[in-house]
Nucleic acid binder design. Structure first.
Lengths: 148, 148
DNA sequence: CCCAAATAGTTGCACATACAACAATTAGCT
DNA sequence: AGCTAATTGTTGTATGTGCAACTATTTGGG
């Protein structure tokens, strides 16, 4: 009994970092698979969803909303501009340093499938975990992020 | 009241993937900082800890223990061999396809600081979260990983 | 008004990680 | 024993991501 107990407890089973890392990589694959239908990586899909939801965001706000580095956002936006999903427009307040990021018609056409895939993924998660534990865990993870 | 409630609920606050991803990136930085003292990335540090704990593991078992791709493990082991922390030895059962991975003296000298840093990180997490919520959350994350 | 500090975004570089293809060896089946 | 399938590990390639350094513009203070 004790022997079996020890055998099942792997070295890093108690480690928040390790297990988060493993989980993150696994869930990433699920998301990659889902958004591959649109030829988009999850990160890009989320950027598009954000900009579709709030057209005209400046990059520094996207940085904040997506909790990514500004260099990363520059590259994501660049790529979405090249692929025709986003465009940069001069700031309406005349500030030359910032641009507002808008979705193109091509991106607008993606709004429904993006939302559908998002909903499907949510459903998929609900098939694995209860609504209550999903909510409480996500809440915990979000609060934990804010503490780091 | 309702207005304030809406304002504080960002677009992806309910999303398990998004929040896990953000959290994972943030905690990764904490771990990077901690192990930088030894000039090691977290992933490499974990590999060393594993091999120090179980000398002679074959790569396919490391793949399983660390939940990483075999190509990633090949590269990690290569790098640790180059840096003098690990060495590959012929399998004792004569199998020519597999090698056993052992720690060098240089790695053995790291055992104590690796464990100390690991313990410090655990302490740091305990300063932020209660023992009980740490345990239950890590358990949940681990189980969730197994479902994906 | 002027200047230094701060800011918005860009670019170079590095790293971890995975997929796909592959080579060499082993395992399993007839 | 022989042959095919499976396995172990390697290599090429691609991607997302961040840090550091930088440029150009804005902001704030004297």
């Amino acid at each position: 009994m004790l022997h079996i107990q020890q055998r099942s407890l792997a070295m890093f089973d108690r480690c928040l970092y390790f297990n988060t890392n493993v989980f993150s990589r696994k869930i990433e694959k699920v998301w990659i698979d889902a958004y591959s239908e649109l030829g988009l990586a999850p990160a890009h899909a989320y950027l598009l969803r954000l900009v579709l939801d709030k057209p005209g965001l400046v990059q520094r706000d996207i940085v904040t909303e997506l909790s990514l580095d500004k260099s990363t956002i520059t590259r994501f936006v660049d790529k979405m501009v090249i692929e025709g999903y986003l465009y940069r427009a001069a700031s309406p307040n005349g500030n030359l340093k910032e641009h507002c990021i808008f979705p193109t018609e091509k991106a607008l056409a993606l709004k429904e499938p993006l939302n559908r895939i998002g909903a499907d993924l949510y459903q998929k998660m609900q098939a694995l975990f209860s609504v209550e534990e999903l909510k409480s865990t996500v809440d915990w993870i979000r609060k934990a992020s804010n503490k780091l």
